[in-house]
């Protein structure tokens, strides 16, 4: 029987969106390392960063912290060592 916090479709959709934006940010970051004066790319990078944080906060509101050591808030009781861990997702 599925454990009580079995994740649904929207959980995985949200995670994939976050992953897609993170990947685009990696690409832009690497691009900007060699193109520091490309203002359009910088603007896009900042837009995507803002969007990424909104999405991450949205995720954390529903499913708990994404990161630890002060990079994410936790609910009560302490959520960091809850299931599913990243390798279980």
């Amino acid at each position: 029987m599925a454990s009580e916090h079995q994740r649904g479709k929207e959980y995985y959709a949200l995670l994939e969106q976050l992953q897609a934006i993170d990947f685009a940010l990696v690409e832009l970051n690497l691009y900007l390392d060699t193109h520091p004066t490309d203002s359009n790319a910088i603007e896009q990078f900042n837009d995507l960063t803002e969007k990424r944080w909104a999405l991450a906060n949205e995720y954390e509101k529903h499913y708990g912290p994404l990161q630890n050591l002060g990079r994410s808030y936790s609910g009560y009781p302490w959520q960091w060592n809850d299931e599913p861990w990243p390798w279980q997702v």
Binding site: I21, F23, E27, A41
Partner: peptide, 21 residues
């Protein structure tokens, strides 16, 4: 040297393709 403002994939497509451009 990569030209600026090359056409891009959407983030979802970029994740599948493995590159943004």
């Amino acid at each position: 040297f990569q030209r600026p403002d090359l056409p891009q994939y959407s983030p979802a497509e970029a994740l599948r393709a493995g590159t943004l451009w």
